[in-house]
Nucleic acid binder design. Structure first.
Length: 433
RNA sequence: GUCCCGUUCGUCUAGUCUGGUCCAGGACACAGGAUUUUCAUUCCUGCAACAUGGGUUCGAAUCCCAUACGGGACGCCA
């Protein structure tokens, strides 16, 4: 039975690198129908463990990862918080004592290394040999156990079969292999996954980098499926050029031996592209639900909101932009974009807006088709391009030169609102000419 | 400094194990163009890489060695 674990330290943040490590563990467990364990490594008692743990649990759930054993779900190998496993650590320390593998110095307990090269059986990198030269502390002089010790004891006690973790731990693995052997426990298989490098600059991504935290993406309304999909592709690929793919398909194909050896640089542009693709392909019902919750501040009629959302889906790249993208639909006091105006003014916008306004009075049916015909006739009669009307009127109605499909926008706004806004624009833009 | 890992377009990658089908494929980004409605949509086109040097071989992106470069680890942090 494959048993893997993700063992974060509750630092108060859940960063992208940790999320990817968790994801690869989860994918592998689901692929082989094994057990995915979440273990909280809270040996550093100084910190606020409850809140910090909640952040990890919440962000993992947001990304769609569930765990078979761990906090809130329990399991036969608990407790799953290291702070509650002192008794177990004491027992394992005794084993090392009986085998004469440890000694005390300055109040701390040291582990005696063998000074022989240790084999790290790595599924991604192949066999790696590394020798640990110096004895190291496993219990501090204040009586608390150290990471290397608790990590190995827990992996042994929880019968972890595969240790999937970041490559920054590869050098630690020689310590850990020695500990497993000294404890008389089977040495697990290892899979050291490549690191995620900063988008700009050198070195691995750290908590302080922009966009390094999962919560940043939640706040900015990224779709979790998109972030997850992107993370799957950082160091792994289906090898057939597919990129946007359902998680079930990733689970079906995922295997440790297909993970890349080299580090990957985080590319926020590609993530943004993926998020846009997910937004565009969202089922309309889901798009409505998500959109409505974000637009609740506008206090607009539900039907109007639905209509606005419907015409915006194809243009929207991120829900983080939704509020701004549609604000003028609901707010009569929108501003006119001065930069856009300077590009527009050579098209005689005030003249076109006036003509458009007069013409709308002549059509009974305020529909896309009629409006399009109307603009076509106007343009022909005046010898200008239809775009001149569209640009000018869009600006009058929204203060911008970009937005959803023009005729759809006009129809949804409705005659009354359109007329009111065009009149206001004529008065204000007159001064700008 | 010591030890460990890595090196294909600017970025993510396919191809490397099982050398010839690769004058290296896809995607993002970027640059042009098209859609007689803007574009932050869609489509098309273009740009662009096997780190370097040796070796093995009829033949090397693919195997071996060295160098360079990048990354990581060397805590009574995790």
């Amino acid at each position: 039975m494959v048993r893997v674990r993700f063992a974060p330290s509750p630092t108060g943040f859940f960063h992208i690198g940790g999320a990817r490590t968790a994801l690869f563990n989860w994918l592998y467990a689901r692929h082989v129908e094994g057990i995915f364990i979440l273990r909280i490594e809270d040996t550093d008692r100084e910190r606020h463990i409850e809140e910090a743990t909640d952040i990890i649990l919440s962000d993992m759930r947001w990304l769609g990862m569930d765990w078979d054993e761990g906090p809130e779900v329990g399991g036969d190998y608990g407790p799953y918080f290291q702070s509650q496993r002192d008794k177990i650590y004491g027992e394992y320390l005794e084993i090392l004592g009986k085998k004469d593998k440890i000694y005390e110095r300055d109040g701390a307990i040291y582990f005696r290394v063998s000074q022989e090269p240790q084999l790290i059986d790595d599924l991604i990198r192949g066999p790696v040999y590394r020798m640990e030269e110096k004895d190291f502390v496993i219990f501090r002089s204040n009586g608390t156990p150290v990471f290397h010790f608790v990590n190995v004891v827990d992996d042994a006690a929880m019968e972890i079969s595969h240790v999937i973790r970041g490559e920054d731990h590869l050098s630690n693995s020689s310590k850990h292999v020695e500990l497993f052997k000294a404890l008389g426990a089977p040495v697990p298989k290892f899979a050291h996954i490549p690191l995620i490098l900063k988008t700009n600059g050198s070195g691995k991504m750290s908590k302080r980098d922009v966009g390094a935290l999962v919560e940043d993406y939640r706040k900015n309304q990224f779709l979790p499926e998109a972030l997850r999909n992107y993370l799957c592709l950082l160091g792994w690929s289906p090898k057939d050029d597919r990129e946007i793919m359902p998680i079930e398909e990733v689970i079906r194909l995922f295997d440790l031996c297909d993970i890349n050896k080299n580090n990957a640089r985080f590319d926020d542009k590609k993530l943004a592209y993926m998020n846009a693709a997910y937004v565009k392909n969202m089922p309309l019902e889901q798009f409505f639900d998500k959109g409505k919750s974000l637009l609740s501040d506008f206090n607009a009629e539900a039907h109007y909101v639905d209509q606005v959302l419907t015409i915006c889906q194809e243009k929207l790249r991120s829900f983080g932009e939704l509020n701004h993208f549609v604000s003028y639909f609901f707010d009569e006091n929108f501003d006119y974009d001065k930069g856009a105006w300077s590009d527009l003014r050579k098209r005689d916008p005030v003249l076109r807006i006036g003509e458009f306004l007069s013409a709308t009075e002549g059509i009974e049916d305020f529909s896309e088709q009629k409006l399009e015909e109307m603009v076509g006739k106007l343009a022909e009669a005046r010898g200008v391009k239809t775009g001149d009307y569209i640009h000018g009127v869009r600006f009058a109605l929204s203060g911008r030169t970009v937005g959803p499909s023009f005729y759809k926008m006009v129809v949804i706004m409705g005659r009354e609102r359109v007329v009111r806004r065009l009149r206001r624009a004529l008065v204000e833009l007159e001064k700008w000419q």
